[in-house]
Design a protein around this nucleic acid. Structure first.
Lengths: 242, 242
DNA sequence: CGACGCGTTGAAACTCGTCAATTGGTGTGG
DNA sequence: CCACACCAATTGACGAGTTTCAACGCGTCG
């Protein structure tokens, strides 16, 4: 029942870099299995020392951090193709938690093989650095958004970004994509209160910028949305898939 | 006038991982030179395509991002030992700017040799991933701070964190360390207005938590400060130096 | 001397958070 | 089949934290 790397449904997407047969063989060996998780299941727990690394194959999740005062920061939304646990693999333990928001399928890798990968497959090592670097860059953008934008700008920015990520992995249809989270999740991701997030969403819907109902996000006016979010990006570049 | 990697003043610090003579030789070859910059000099410009990578040897700097509306987010403060330009090296171009706040000395590397490094020195490749991963983790913490904490919590957090980083590279003496930035820089780093930052700093000084005057930061009450900032970290782990 | 950058302070305006209550949908047990 | 609990979304009212505006002091530099 395990997906063959060579037939990986994600790899077919043109957003991901191609691999040679040899490289695929190595990845297949690196991959030790596959798991399917129910919605709501924790994948990594803060402070834990997971012996495994994952790549999301299907479904969506949430990376977050809890504070002693009970507040929560959602660091990022997890989409198919995302690598999970690199920090744990490199640093020993994770300082944030990851959980499945919808049911998910994960590719499982053995952390102890990470070093083998660095020695035998410099291309994959490079890819890993690439992934970490891109994630770092992305977090810089989130920080900029949360630090410098108003509520409606942040929300527009966050949803537009999410839409773009969905688009890159083929999860969009027309101007809409799934967004299976709660308003509280979005609020915690953008540093806003639930109530204010709700009211701002209503305003954005009234202004015909975007709408989010029943787990579906629709970008109604791409131009206006990009202007509000101060985004002018072209399309995303090809990226590695581990 | 170029510092020998084997005699690198930073490497002496016990915070950095040791290297074998062989490894040092490779790094020496990787290093193509050294630059000294005046205060205020730009190091990387957003959107540029720098052919070089750097490691800060001496002095302090600032990584930041500008928004179309003129606002600025300071992503991080640059300290000795920090690697600059990994994103450019891996992704092609940087999406943020870096500039020298004080005068700085930088180690210069050739970006085109990065791939050689990955093939020939898997340990260094691993180190680079480590660095990117730690930076990613750090940005997650900043995001949590900016997203979920009040002004005084954020400021205490930011300054305490900076102090810890200084401490790791031996820049502290007693309870104080240099902090050569402007209040505007700190405000932009934490997503606060200049005025409010100023008033909050005054309050923290009056409460005997910490004081920052004339470019020097003093932690007056470590325990109370850690409590406010919700930090309970022990000491930082050893880290690689590229 | 005046211009400029940075720190400081006061007052007013506003965004956003908190409190509180309601609605609708879903699942569960009697 | 209905009552009830529970969760997410929604809405109104109020207040707090923070921003913005404006002004002043101080040191440095040309």
């Amino acid at each position: 029942m395990v997906t063959d790397c060579a037939k990986c449904p994600l790899r077919i997407s043109k957003i991901f870099d191609d691999m040679s047969a040899e490289e695929l063989r190595f990845m297949q060996k690196f991959k030790v299995g596959e798991t399917t998780l129910e919605k709501g299941t924790p994948i990594l727990m803060e402070g834990s020392n997971s012996p495994q690394l994952y790549t999301a194959l299907r479904g969506m999740g949430l990376r977050y951090k809890l504070l002693p005062n009970g507040r929560r920061q959602v660091i990022n939304f997890v989409l198919p193709g995302d690598f999970i646990g690199l920090q744990a693999g490199v640093m020993g333990e994770v300082r944030h938690s990851v959980e499945a928001t919808t049911s998910m399928t994960l590719c499982v890798f053995d952390r102890s093989e990470l070093w083998t990968l660095f020695r035998q497959q410099p291309e994959r090592a490079y890819d890993l650095t690439w992934l970490a670097s891109v994630e770092e860059h992305f977090l810089g953008e989130v920080l900029t958004s949360v630090g410098q934008m108003s509520a409606s700008e942040r929300i527009t920015w966050g949803l537009l970004r999410f839409f773009a990520r969905c688009s890159a992995v083929g999860l969009t249809s027309g101007g809409s994509c799934p967004f299976p989270y709660r308003q509280q999740d979005l609020a915690d991701a953008l540093g806003l209160s639930l109530v204010h997030t709700n009211k701002t969403l209503t305003k954005l819907r009234d202004r015909q910028i975007l709408s989010w109902r029943d787990g579906t996000l629709r970008i109604l006016d791409t131009e206006k949305a990009k202007e509000i979010a101060m985004i002018d990006d072209a399309k995303p570049a090809a990226r590695p898939l581990i």
